[in-house]
């Protein structure tokens, strides 16, 4: 009996650590995208996390793990299309982000629709779902239906246990603003299609929530040149 309890508490402890790591990575991701988050929110310690997000019996309550973040002024500037005579006061393409954790073994179309409806109703421009189970194919088909109002993204919790951009083999990725992109294309006399490409489902592109048509600058360290920058177009 005592052994059983021991195993249970051990499994529970592992579960808490997993949730904590995913929580931290999610915050880092939101911060790296340019949203405003306080440093103590991102770098939450395990003990603080335990006191905040576990229920009385010691298990993680993922229903409580949710947060929203507002885009920083720089991010808003980066994502605002240039003013044109027909559209003198353009609105930025980004807005508040909503992040939610979910511990259902699998997410169906109904749950996905509910989440997307919630996000579009509350005027969140981006909704992020972090799941412990898998997503059914019908649920994936629900996402493009709400594309007009809100962008739904989903990640598996097990993929967020570590932050991939902190790995030594992953170079620094910087997403270019519209002006920077046009300057780049002008400087090298390129058309968009002549750039190397990066897939939208690439793990790093997913991490930064890249959209089709954006250009990312990849800065690698080079033994001979010190730094080597390359550019990729998201497709």
């Amino acid at each position: 009996m005592a052994d059983m309890e021991n195993i249970n508490s051990e499994a529970n402890e592992r579960n808490i650590v997993k949730a904590w790591r995913a929580w931290r990575t999610a915050h880092e991701m939101v911060q790296d995208r340019g949203y405003e988050l306080a440093e103590e929110e991102v770098k939450i310690s395990l003990d603080a996390f335990r006191t905040q997000y576990t229920s009385i019996d010691g298990t993680v309550s993922r229903e409580r793990m949710k947060f929203s973040a507002r885009p920083s002024p720089e991010m808003l500037k980066k994502y605002t299309p240039p003013a044109t005579p027909s559209n003198p006061d353009p609105q930025p393409d980004v807005g508040t982000i909503w992040v939610e954790f979910n511990d259902d073994p699998s997410v169906g179309a109904e749950a996905m629709r509910r989440f997307a409806k919630f996000c579009s109703h509350e005027h969140y421009r981006t909704g992020m779902m972090i799941l412990s189970g898998n997503v059914s194919s019908a649920a994936k088909k629900e996402i493009p239906k709400f594309a007009q109002w809100t962008t739904i993204e989903w990640f598996l919790e097990e993929d967020l246990l570590i932050n991939i951009t902190h790995h030594e083999l992953v170079p620094r990725h910087v997403i270019l603003s519209r002006e920077e992109k046009t300057a780049l294309l002008k400087r090298y006399r390129l058309k968009e299609t002549q750039l190397p490409r990066i897939l939208q489902r690439d793990p790093v592109a997913k991490y930064f929530g890249m959209r089709r048509g954006q250009v990312v600058k990849i800065i690698r360290s080079s033994e001979t040149a010190g730094r080597y920058a390359s550019y990729r177009l998201c497709v």
Binding site: P105, S106, V107, G108, A109, E110, S136, S137, A138, A139, K141
Partner: peptide, 11 residues
């Protein structure tokens, strides 16, 4: 129909 089966299973 396969999607429906998957959806029912997830329920």
């Amino acid at each position: 129909y396969d999607d429906l089966i998957e959806e029912r299973n997830s329920n």
